[in-house]
Each structure stands twice: as C-alpha cells, then as structure tokens.
Simulated scan of single mutants.
Amino acid sequence: MSVASRHVMATGVVIGALAFTLIALLIPVQKFGGSAVAAAPAATGDDDGAGTLSTAFGPLTPQDRDFVRKVRLAGLWELPAGRQAQQRGKRPMVRTAGEHLIEGHTELDRRVMEVGQALGIELPNRPSAQQQGWLDQLDAAQGPQYEQLFAQLLRRAHGKVFALVAQIRAQTRNSMVRALATDANTTVLDHITVLEATGLVDFDGLADAPPSPSAPLPRPTK
C-alpha cells in the first residue's frame, strides 16, 4: 500500500471517529421551545420525568411545572365551588367569598393558561379525584351545614396552597413561573381573608382531615 493510500485511510478513520462522537453527544439532547437542552436526570419529588428544561424565561424545573399544574387544578374546583356559594349561600359573607373565588380564579386561570402555553406545559382539564370528592361533599350538604363545609374545605385547601406558592416564589429561576406565583400569592391571601371573614372557619380543625357531610361541624361564631 502506498503512502498516499495509507494517509487517505487514516484520514477517513479520524473523520469517522469524530462523526461517531458527535452523534453520541447529540443523542441525549431534546428540543424544547426552540432551544436544545440536555436531558437532566430524574429528580426526586413531583417529577414528570422531563428534568430541568431550558426556556427563554429561565430554567424550568419539575417543581415549577408541578406548581403551574396545581394552579390550574385549584381553579378547576374552586371556580365551581365559588359559583355554588353565590347561589346557595344564605349569609352575605359566604356569597361574598364565592364572588371572590370566581373573580380570583377566573383571572388566575387565564394567566396559568398563558404560562402553560408559553412554557409548553400540558395542563389538566378536570379536577383531581380528591377535588371532585370535595365538590361532591358540597353538593350533598344541606342548610347551615353547607356553608360551614364550604368555608372549612376552601380555607383548608388555600392554607396548603399558600405555603407552596411562597416556596416556589422564593426558589424558581423562571421569570414566568415567578410572576404566576406572585399573582397566586395575592389571590390566595385574598381568598383566605374572605373565607375567614365568614366566621365559619374552625381553626383547630384546619390541620385535621377535612370534615365529611355526616361529621358534626362547629357552631358559627357571631
């Protein structure tokens, strides 16, 4: 074999090795929002398996996506609960709380749909099984029991969400998620305030399981 032939062969081997290396590097890369990002290892906690993604608004973690979906889920049951409170509530403050739920979650739902679309997050379109169970409890409750159950269920749910909103607001590096958390913080605090103003919230029972329709409920404060 001539020197020229050996040189051509060696060059071909080098080019082939470089091509193989390039392919190997590209395999773990996935597309998101028009930019390529390396697939991150699965994280613990509320992880959808997609890892941390690069977006035009900053890194998007599994926890960020989980928060956005939970904001959407909140509206899917609290909006119907608010409408029901306006229709069935006897006390003016219960109807007022229902009005705040409708107004707050209508706007928050609009915002979360924008965020979901911008960040490529698939959002739920129906309440979770637990949330549907709460709505079923409200449907079955009658008279004064309905108003007490409404105040207790909604106040307990908002208290849990409030802690999550604060955590995401403090930790997220995604500007769209941060803005959504800021809006959610304002909305949730408003709802907590009007629910407490009904005088029907049993604060000692907030840490316990939510009351069932058959369970005795506390007397409303005057």
Rank of each mutant, 00 (worst) to 15 (best):
R91G: 14
R110K: 13
D109Q: 15
H100C: 00
M113F: 10
P41D: 13
R88F: 04
V112F: 02
R72F: 01
L135E: 03
A40G: 06
V194Q: 04
A19V: 15
L149W: 08
T61H: 03
G75H: 03
S212G: 09
R156L: 00
H191K: 00
T11E: 08
Q148G: 02
Q142Y: 01
A215M: 15
L217D: 08
R83A: 14
T44L: 13
R173K: 15
A97K: 00
L73G: 01
E107C: 06
F203S: 00
P62N: 03
V8A: 15
A39H: 08
N174E: 05
F67D: 05
P210R: 00
K90C: 04
L79M: 08
A140S: 15
S175H: 08
M176T: 13
S175Q: 15
R173W: 03
M1H: 12
R83C: 03
Q63G: 09
L206E: 02
G199D: 04
L22H: 11
V112I: 12
A151V: 04
P218F: 02
Q148H: 05
I15V: 15
D136M: 05
D136I: 05
R95E: 05
M176R: 13
A184W: 00
L60P: 03
D204T: 09
R219S: 15
D208F: 02
T182N: 07
D183V: 00
R111E: 11
F150T: 02
T55P: 03
G12M: 15
D183T: 03
T221F: 06
D66S: 12
G45Y: 08
L60K: 06
G49E: 04
R6S: 13
A151M: 07
I102T: 09
V115N: 03
P220D: 09
A4D: 11
P211G: 07
S35D: 12
P213D: 06
V3I: 11
P124Q: 04
T55R: 03
